[in-house]
Computed example of a mutant assay.
Amino acid sequence: MQSTLTPVPAGWLATIVTSLEMTARPAAPTEPVRAPFKLERWTAPASVEAYRALFRKIGGPWLWFSRLLLSDAELAAILDAPTTELYVATRRDGTAIGIIELDFAAPSQTELAFIGLTPELAGHGHGGWLMQHALRRAWRDDTVRVWVHTCDLDHPGALRFYQRQGFKPYARAVETFPDPRVTGLYPRDIAPHVLLLA
């Protein structure tokens, strides 16, 4: 079999996206994961400004960009939809440090649209606490599938983390898009581990 090499234009990025799914409700952990944070639901109408600020704070190092391309009205329509549930993890002083965004639009399925913590919390075991809360809310009585996707621009441990939580990979694709540092969505010096060619 012959390999192919597809050029990526200057100012663009290419990433491998892996989709994962869980088709059975996970067994409840014998001992709940603990963390010095609390989780609260953001109800409609959600503040698009606060959401974008947290999205950037969590996703900036991994170049999360999709929600930043939306107008206020487009973003509000997603966040305030009856099929969206949005949860924010906070420190005791109220500082937002994590997000869970669930999409229930497909019947009997839940997309874990976004989940993450601010970069300084990575690697301290708090992801398990956040995922435990996400899965508890993602699985409803009629749910048959929960799915999520990640890419190789995300945290290096993200794919293994999802697999440890019980998600199984089922699809892979290559996504190309304008580098958000070139388009001005992020400063050019963010995510230095991702080569910027522009």
Rank of each mutant, 00 (worst) to 15 (best):
D154S: 12
L86G: 03
T30R: 15
A28W: 07
L117G: 00
A105S: 15
P29C: 04
A10I: 01
T176A: 13
V33T: 14
P192N: 02
D189N: 13
P82R: 09
R140P: 02
R160F: 06
A198T: 08
G166K: 09
P36Y: 13
A134E: 02
T143A: 04
A122C: 10
I190N: 02
T18L: 00
G11Y: 12
I78C: 03
R140T: 10
V146K: 01
L196T: 11
G116W: 00
V194S: 01
F104N: 02
R41F: 04
I97R: 04
Q2F: 15
S19M: 09
S71A: 09
R92T: 15
A134P: 02
F177S: 08
T90K: 15
T90C: 15
A113R: 13
P36M: 11
D152Q: 03
A76N: 06
R145S: 06
V144A: 04
W147E: 10
R25C: 12
P61A: 05
P26Q: 02
H149T: 07
A171G: 12
W129D: 00
L195E: 12
P156E: 01
D103L: 06
Y186D: 01
E111H: 14
L54S: 01
L197N: 12
T90P: 00
T83M: 03
L185P: 04
Q163Y: 11
F167P: 01
S3E: 11
W147P: 00
L75W: 07
P32E: 00
P178D: 03
E85M: 06
F55P: 00
H149Q: 13
A53K: 15
P82A: 07
T176W: 08
A134L: 07
A113C: 05
V194C: 04
H155A: 14
R91K: 15
M22P: 01
A113D: 14
T150E: 11
D103T: 05
T30C: 07
